[in-house]
Design a protein around this nucleic acid. Sequence first.
DNA 1: CTTTTGCGTTAGACTTGTCTAATTTGGTGT
DNA 2: ACACCAAATTAGACAAGTCTAACGCAAAAG
Lengths: 230, 230
Amino acid sequence: MLSAKMEDYLKAIYRLERDGDPPIAPSTIAEMLDVTAPTVTSMVEKLADRGLIEREKYKGVRTTPEGETVALEIIRHHRLLETFLTEQLGYDWAEVHEEAEVLEHHISEEFERRVAAVLDEPEFDPHGDPIPSDSLDPIDDESATALSEHNEGGRVEVARVRDRDPDELTYLSDAGITPGTVLTVEEVAPIGMVTVQLESGSSVSLPDHIADAIQVRAPETQGEDGVSQA
Amino acid sequence: MLSAKMEDYLKAIYRLERDGDPPIAPSTIAEMLDVTAPTVTSMVEKLADRGLIEREKYKGVRTTPEGETVALEIIRHHRLLETFLTEQLGYDWAEVHEEAEVLEHHISEEFERRVAAVLDEPEFDPHGDPIPSDSLDPIDDESATALSEHNEGGRVEVARVRDRDPDELTYLSDAGITPGTVLTVEEVAPIGMVTVQLESGSSVSLPDHIADAIQVRAPETQGEDGVSQA
DNA sequence: CTTTTGCGTTAGACTTGTCTAATTTGGTGT
DNA sequence: ACACCAAATTAGACAAGTCTAACGCAAAAG
């Protein structure tokens, strides 16, 4: 059996592979998990022994297919739990991350199955992140672009919000911005700020680091066709 | 913060106090938790240092009020989870114990509150065990008697089933015996077996160890007054 | 082609929870 | 009162996961 810690490392490595490029340097892992470099060295040795990552000394690591499957399993747990907490227990999207971060390591496969069934096999979590399927096939993550890359006048739909800061998430949902929200880029100020206009007409200004975290795509062509992820 | 292990010891000690009498001997704790005696010695030292139990060397331990509160908190988590798993996720009462045994250590206070609210502040879990209130006051456990102590002809209502063996629990629920079931003692055989008759007319024979685990009380005088725990 | 410098690894220690083996304690039986 | 026995404690070891300090590699700078 894998420990919760090993699962955390695997999840972190997988995430870093998705963003940057393999191999992933120990220092990067250390920073993400807030541990020291020697701690990472000893843990990656263990994961490599188990065949969950490939390791090249002094270079870095990359997940093996088995390691990727483990990471996807944990991510599936995490996102199912986040969805469950919001839909069934009335949590706000700002609160769910922390709770899911702990529980993801402790639920059984039975629990996973039953939650997925109760939620009707959801495909996206409350932040718009895709939930890996039961078969744990790799997910394609890259169909959306950051809001910060769009120019004034662009009309887009929020796909995902890659921010886990509770205050910032609460601010966004209070402002009416959640996955599915359609908005227009009103102004890109040169001082590190983007102002968007919602369909309700209200304007919201966002600092760059938040505009970076908001992933958007072309709006649903129109109307309610029922396949929106919200 | 308390580790999951410390919580397990506290819960075990509290349970043993409820059954037998304090002080609780280390060997008893060791057996319940399936660890060796020296392991218990070192753990009770730690718990005593933290003020959660009182310890008399070579005698045994007893919980302090703070220790009791911790135990009740974990028991509340456990029983709320068992109730939640059956009512909201469709688990069978035979399956819930194991899952709750793990999760009880990992849910937040927020999760506890929300589950309790969704379930409308339940007072009993699926096995008929009382759920400690939010204020964690000690619960009185002793209003019921074992089915095995009743004589032929006695008519009783099942209050709790203190058995966690999945096969036995499945057998009982398949036979129609769950908390709230009214039954009559049909025969007490001298070979370690009790036969009861359900209101449906069907008879069920039970070995002593199961009849010991079934706690009963005088049936609700009659009719549906809505305060039954089922 | 050598030196520097940053990052990674090695060495060694600490904590938690566990074990086995050895020793001590306290009550029992004669 | 003494010996004995069962149970508890002490002693010492180990695995997991972490740290700090010391050392070594390898790529960049000159």
